[in-house]
Design a protein around this nucleic acid. Structure first.
Lengths: 216, 216
DNA sequence: GTCTATAATCAGATAGAC
DNA sequence: GTCTATCTGATTATAGAC
């Protein structure tokens, strides 16, 4: 049995720093900006140290992804346990911050096998969870053949559409898409009037531009 | 005025070959596989020759994109001039071959400024064209606030959702999404019964897996 | 047109000193 | 834990021969 290379512990503060730096780099400049050198530089350390915690670069990326999924699942769990899970899911999906990182990973999955496998295995789990939260809606009466799974996939997909295009500078028709989507959501999950004033939670989706985005 | 570097003509057959090879490489292995070396190798030429026709790599990518947009616009034009433009647009957007390349460019745009600018300028043009084709539909009567622009954006977006997730190996709920979408389309643009037999054109969207996809 | 040769970066990954 | 030093290989891009 050959001598294994040394590797950092999961509890290390430095390891967490590396994950933070990688995530931030992806959000600021896109996943293509991620390299052991750039990540290390970002927090004033050396590339070799990155390899100490993450032997291969894919290990780093997968770790970032897993942590992000865990965080998302947690936030999602509280969101969809609300009175109006469908509208909560919509707000969640149209929130740029929640979705931008997911988009980066989807883009990255196109040419990183490890990430693709990770996404495929987590996506169905999350979607199933979302569908479960929508199962209390009265889809039986829906005249359009809607069901929890399809609605979950659609709502999240439309949210991503808006966020993704927004990041590219495309906005034509977005107002109308939002109108149609929200009208549809209202029909599936009627808003319950509270005290008569305007509803408390405005749509989270505003101007989707990212802060520090730089080109190539 | 400094001496300009030599550059190949637009009519060159070799230039067209380079564009073909680049496009194929993007579809087979993802945009990240595109480099002057890989492209040149693919057709048995040298990297330097790529730079002869396309001084910078971005020039090559933009040229591929422009050519693809032109081709798409042409196919789209004939498609949506049919009797049922909305259903035609749906079939177009759910066709993996038509959409896969677009997805690659969208992913690439996340970190290539030149591509992002190109996409932003072409996307609105295409969407406007699609919306125009849908303007003959009776949206005035639509109880859900649908309008051509929003419907165009939504239909294409949902199609892309299916294609994109399919490429990642995600399929959970896709059948239901397709059901919901097609039911919606039928309500917006009622199918006209022909001679009573099954409708001629089946949905184009089947198994979305790409052929030669390789990881990392 | 197409090539060879080369410069200048940048990447991933490892060994071994401290 | 963190570093320096190094190997290896890929990439963009240019100059100049043929």
């Amino acid at each position: 049995m050959k001598r294994m290379r040394r590797i950092g512990t999961e509890e290390s503060a430095t390891r967490a720093l590396l994950l933070d730096a990688t995530e931030q780099l992806m959000l600021d400049e896109g996943y293509a900006a991620v390299s052991t050198r750039r990540v290390a530089k970002q927090i004033g350390l050396t590339p070799a140290l990155v390899h100490y915690y993450f032997p291969a670069t894919d290990d780093l990326l997968v770790a970032v992804y897993r942590r992000a999924v865990d965080k998302t699942v947690e936030r999602l769990r509280t969101a969809i346990s609300s009175e109006e899970p469908l509208h909560a899911l919509w707000r969640f999906s149209t929130d740029a911050d929640c979705t931008a990182l997911a988009m980066e990973f989807m883009a990255m999955a196109n040419h990183r096998k490890a990430i693709r496998a990770e996404i495929a295995s987590s996506a169905e789990r999350v979607r199933t969870m979302q569908a479960a939260a929508l199962s209390k809606l009265a889809f039986d009466k829906d005249p359009n053949g809607c069901d929890p799974l399809g609605v979950a996939a659609l709502v999240v997909g439309i949210g991503r559409l808006l966020v993704m295009e927004g990041a590219l500078g495309i906005a034509l028709g977005h107002d109308r898409v939002r109108d149609i989507a929200e009208h549809w959501l209202d029909s599936l999950e009627p808003r319950q009037e509270t005290t008569g004033d305007a509803r408390a939670d405005a749509p989270a989706y505003g101007r989707p531009q990212r802060a520090g985005r730089r080109g190539n």
